[in-house]
């Protein structure tokens, strides 16, 4: 037996906070209570490099060592050094053509 009915008119929607600020406030109190994020936060691991081109260079062993040492010193991949060297070469070419 079901002897109750719903008066939908009596169930009015109430405004609730939904701004980024209020969500941040909610997250803060939740985290303090141990209610923490359970979803993966973004991609794991190193972001994909945009450097997808390849050069096929064989150089003298001492040059290879020097390029490797310089890349380590600058904290970049060897490809970045090659790009810089190429840019310097291009600038030099442009300078020559202007003369």
């Amino acid at each position: 037996m079901n002897d109750f009915s719903i008066d939908l008119a009596s169930l009015k929607r109430r405004a609730k906070p939904g701004s980024e600020t209020s969500v941040a406030k909610t997250d803060k109190v939740a985290e303090a209570r141990g209610f923490v994020p359970r979803e993966p936060q973004g991609r794991r691991g190193r972001p994909k490099s945009p450097r997808t081109g390849q050069v096929h260079a064989k150089v003298m062993p001492e040059v290879a060592e020097q390029i490797s040492a310089e890349a380590r010193r600058q904290g970049v991949q060897q490809g970045v050094l090659i790009e810089k060297a190429w840019e310097l070469y291009r600038e030099k070419q442009r300078g020559l053509s202007r003369k």
């Binding site: 939908l8 209570r33 359970r38």
Partner: peptide, 25 residues
């Protein structure tokens, strides 16, 4: 919440941010 229905939210049985965000609404 805006389309004229009673909304009932069923959550996972863990302490998660999802729970606190749903409670806020």
């Amino acid at each position: 919440d805006a389309d004229g229905r009673i909304v009932i939210v069923d959550l996972e049985g863990i302490a998660s941010r999802m729970v606190s965000r749903a409670i806020s609404q």
